[in-house]
């Protein structure tokens, strides 16, 4: 899932300083699961903003809506009836994708309430960690299911580097060396020989450096 966390209240407060009435929009997808932008967080943020504004003697009116997803037009459209004339700003608690989908649909001041962090998963309640760097051409089968792009600080494809120490990364002693993990795992799988094959330089144009990426599936396209 996309993992995000809330921006400091002060920051969101400043982003809507001019507004009298705001639409606070949650997302029922990833950010609900990582406890950053679901219905509950919408309630907390809206109440916090209202109270902070009341203390500044400039009351704020809020309308709270949580969509199933903000990254799908069929759900975004459901906002139409809430985006009325008097809505001065839309506060989105989705990842950056949701914020942009709302901004693309409505000619309003749309602001992000979250910082979108990474593609990762839940380790335990309240703990999330990055797993995928969205490189566009997965090589996990070459590395025993451990991603060197995101888990190695240098994104080395033929590791480890000379700084790997006692299983830890030289960049941060708290982080496991991804290549140590890869080596251990390949040994466990009896596939150490695979590591002798040099992984060629990656085509980074398939990653984010190549500009906006698209995925097309002809059979799924309706019109």
């Amino acid at each position: 899932m996309i993992v995000a966390e809330g921006k400091p209240l002060e920051e969101v407060y400043a982003l809507i300083a001019e507004a009298k009435k705001v639409l606070v929009v949650g997302c029922g997808g990833c950010v609900t699961v990582c406890l950053a932008g679901g219905e509950k967080e919408v309630g907390l943020l809206a109440a916090s903003l209202r109270m902070k504004r009341k203390l500044a003697d400039r009351p704020l009116e809020t309308v709270e809506v949580t969509l199933t997803r903000q990254c799908d037009p069929e759900y975004v459209e459901q906002l139409d009836r809430y985006v009325t004339e008097e809505i001065d700003a839309i506060v989105s608690l989705a990842c950056g994708v949701g914020v942009q989908f709302l901004a693309e649909r409505y000619p309003k001041w749309v602001v992000p309430a979250l910082n979108t962090k990474f593609a990762g998963g839940t380790l335990a309640p309240g703990r999330w960690e990055e797993r995928c760097g969205l490189c566009g051409e997965c090589i996990l089968h070459r590395t025993g299911g451990i991603c060197p792009i995101i888990r190695c600080a240098k994104s080395i494809l033929n590791g480890p580097c000379g700084g790997s120490q006692n299983g830890k990364c030289e960049v941060n002693k708290e982080i496991d060396c991804a290549w140590q993990l890869i080596y251990d795992r390949m040994r466990l799988l009896g596939r150490l020989d695979d590591l002798l094959t040099i992984e060629p330089a990656k085509d980074w144009s398939k990653a984010k450096d190549g500009g906006l990426r698209k995925v097309l599936r002809e059979e799924a396209i309706l019109a």
Binding site: P8, E10, L44, S48, L55
Partner: peptide, 8 residues
């Protein structure tokens, strides 16, 4: 902590 951020 949230109360402090709000100003209470």
């Amino acid at each position: 902590k949230r109360l402090a951020e709000i100003g209470l």
